[in-house]
Amino acid sequence: MNAGEQPLLRVAGLNRSYGSRVACADIAFELYPGEILAVVGESGSGKTTLLNCIAGRLRPDRGSVEYDIRDSGLRDIWQLAEAERRMLARTDWGYVQQNPRDGLRAAVSAGANIGERLMLVGARHYGAIREQSAGWMARVELDAERIDELPTAFSGGMQQRLNIARNLVTHPRLVFMDEPTASLDVSVQARLLDLLRNLSAELQVAAVIVTHDLAVARLLAQRMLVMRGGVVVEDGLTDQVLDDPQHPYTQLLVTSVLRAA
């Protein structure tokens, strides 16, 4: 970690409305390489809208989303041509949805799901692609023997791990995650969180994780943004925001969590 380095992502004055309803108002933050940022808030607070705006999936009404593109530095992704943006999304970024089935292709095998992104960036050698796919299945703790099975043959937790492997195989520098553990059983959540924690440390991949689960934020993220009604009401180090919340809404969030142990 070097305080002098330049941000990977810089968001400024980002606004997005649906008709008269404001989903994101004047959002600004920076994300540095290898850093994990959690965006927390209740349903309807605008966190998924924010994620989609910075992931190139939803055009903001106003503001800039600059990303440090390899070789050309910080560029506003919404000023890029559609093809350039799509290229970023399939090589340098990952996107992990809440429901793994939204990220996987149901009609092709587990191995093909992982290998697809490699082929999109030009890999052609079938044996090498298959080998990498098998390697990634092992890294996300899936049995590589099942490489030819369809995603539907896997449980929800396994599907999410497959989805993560599919996203990480091209070694992205930034991964967007929308409630990555919310659709899973609690017993499966811990395993996935542990896996994400290890992979992020090992690969030094940066991530923006949208979650309503403060424990997920505490475990994975160094920094967090608290959103309410489209506005960031508080931001800072994760432990600082959770242990010494300043804003009334953050205080309410933190004190509303039931402590299991």
Partner: peptide, 10 residues
């Protein structure tokens, strides 16, 4: 900044 604090802690 948060990054400086993380550095101090490290």
């Amino acid at each position: 900044t948060p990054r400086q604090i993380l550095q101090l802690r490290a």
